[in-house]
Simulated scan of single mutants.
Amino acid sequence: MADKIRHDWSVDQIVALHDLPLLDLVGRANATHRAHHDPDRVQKASLLSIKTGGCPENCAYCPQSAHHREVDLTRDRLMDPNKVIAMAGRARLAGADRFCMGAAWRQVRDGAEFDAVIRMVRGVRDLGMEACVTLGMLKPHQAQRLAEAGLTAYNHNLDTSPEFYDKIITTRTYQDRLDTLATVRAYGIELCCGGIIGMGESTRDRASMLQVLAHMQPHPESVPINALVPVAGTPLEHQPRIDPLELVRMVATARIVMPTSTVRLSAGRASLNREAQILCLVAGANSIFYGDTLLTTPNAGIGEDADLLAALAARPAERICEPA
């Protein structure tokens, strides 16, 4: 029997799910997935860094932090909106139906740069694509402007559990993140909110993060599950890569506790072989990021993804809106 939508999961219950025998866990997750989604449909999303580097936050995993001076990364100013919209058009032709734009900011500031982001959002929507941005913290009037521009979703990840959070970030509180998510939700924008595994956290930390997400009403429409990509010059550069089956377990657990959400197989996918990626899709992932780079870290190649989706005989998601 498929899992029902719940908002009362305990951490212990989620840990128990996560630690089920793997075939039992994947079987239950697949049944849940089939009850709420077409298992043959996989959404392709494209992700672009529209402003790279120089972020004042000190996230231990992130090469864009200004605190990590040894990282080999070129800082770039905000891209021209016309160039961004043209790149979105190329992504659409390559099969993507969601275009995500990330700026390495701590928070949104009013002015010419935010005006440019609004133009980008409108331009992407005019192409008939879903538009998602990740811009850091924002105020109510800024969320309202994004909503009026037609923004589909706002990405603002929790990253990890409340208990492990200060081991990874100290320049922004967990409550800051929750407040931003509440602001976004208040203006009718979908939430894209997940986290990263492989940063040294425990299974209980992973379950605690999922509990925070699953207690939201409604659940986030989009839940990215990322595996850490260690980057030279960051505090986590020597962190070992996770076993691919840990990612499978996290995807499956997320699918069970948030049955209707789109679970996105995100960073770290480039290190997975085809079979591990397919197992994640069987376990409930129904979106991949499509393109050679995720902000500043490598992603699976477009050709490899085409082969993967062809092997699955997967069809694209059916949420593309008509161009305005």
Rank of each mutant, 00 (worst) to 15 (best):
H36C: 12
Y174E: 01
R28M: 07
S261G: 04
V42T: 13
D179R: 13
G89K: 15
G200Y: 03
T180Q: 00
P230Q: 01
Q239A: 13
Y61I: 10
L127T: 09
Y290V: 05
Q13H: 08
A182S: 13
S208R: 13
S208F: 04
I50A: 01
I256F: 01
K167N: 14
I118K: 01
V223W: 03
S287E: 14
D115A: 14
H68V: 10
V282S: 00
R34F: 03
A267P: 08
A149Y: 06
I196V: 14
T74Q: 14
P21V: 12
I278S: 03
D40C: 10
G233K: 09
A35W: 05
Y187F: 14
G150P: 06
C55F: 10
R90S: 14
H67N: 14
N273V: 07
F99S: 03
K83M: 13
L17Q: 03
I189G: 00
N157I: 11
H215L: 08
V108K: 00
R6F: 05
A310E: 11
D19F: 00
P235C: 07
H141V: 12
A45L: 12
L181T: 06
D72I: 11
D307L: 13
A324P: 15
L151A: 03
E246Q: 15
A147W: 08
P63K: 03
A306S: 11
C100V: 15
L178M: 14
Q217Y: 08
R255F: 03
L151R: 04
S261F: 10
H156E: 03
C100R: 05
D97W: 10
G233F: 09
L272Q: 08
W9Y: 13
D8G: 02
L181N: 00
P224H: 04
L138C: 02
K51D: 03
A252I: 11
R41M: 09
N30M: 09
L135A: 02
F99G: 01
N155V: 12
K44M: 15
T293D: 05
E190H: 15
C280R: 02
L281A: 08
I225H: 00
D12G: 11
G301F: 07
A324N: 14
G95N: 05
L210C: 01
H7F: 14
N299H: 06
Y154H: 05
N226F: 08
Q144D: 12
L236R: 07
H7N: 11
D159M: 05
A285G: 09
L151V: 11
C55Y: 06
T262A: 04
C62S: 07
M79N: 05
D205G: 03
T152S: 13
A116V: 11
H215Q: 12
P39V: 10
T203R: 15
N58P: 09
T170N: 08
S271I: 13
A153L: 02
R206Y: 05
L281W: 05
E275W: 12
A91R: 09
E190S: 15
L93D: 15
D166G: 04
A60S: 15
H215M: 10
D12S: 13
R172W: 06
R255S: 01
A300Q: 11
A214L: 04
L294D: 07
G54S: 05
D40H: 12
T171Y: 07
P56M: 05
A94R: 15
L78E: 05
I302L: 14
A252G: 01
Y154C: 03
A267Y: 07
S261P: 08
